[in-house]
Amino acid sequence: MDVTAIVFYTMGALIVIAGLGVSFASRDSLVTCLNFLVVMLSTGVIFLLLDAPMIAVLQILVWSGVTGLAMVFAVMLVGRDNRTFRPAGIRLTKIAGGLLVVIVLAEWLRFTADTRSSLPPVPPGYGDSGGLGVALYTDYLLVVELVSLLLLATLVSALVLVDRKAGR
């Protein structure tokens, strides 16, 4: 077992434990946010192990930096009480969600049955941020422009929603 595997399994265990903390720890919203930060930072480390340094930087900047801190700010605004869970009745959404979970786990079992190999060796040039940038601005230029339009629309609509005078 080499260092890569040890780091991977440590980070995987951290992700699962902190993910359970995000979804099911009921006491305090702030604890939920901190668990979320742990999940995102550990996922960034796993991205580094998978030779995607640019994605790891994006992950840590956007998820932990922006989203995590914005959520901590929201907790400061609305209070830390997080004890309410949904009532235990069976509804259509719960059936659909449970079905989704079962389908995803079954897909994983099928993938495991088909593919039991380690990751292939890295070809030279893979993991350079430059290659990803060239791909983004040649083959995927339309997608990048659409995403920038989406972000602009989000900015404007968030301002309209929050502004007291412009709203209803």
């Binding site: 995987g12 359970l20 979804s23 719960k94 969600g97 979970v101 995803v104 593919t115 039991r116 380690s118």
Partner: peptide, 26 residues
Amino acid sequence: MIPEHHVIGLSAILFAIGVLGVLVRR
């Protein structure tokens, strides 16, 4: 080295946790 299906398995477990959290949280 890391086996590929362990990466995908971690992803599947995390997805399941997220969906169950959406169902449970109020």
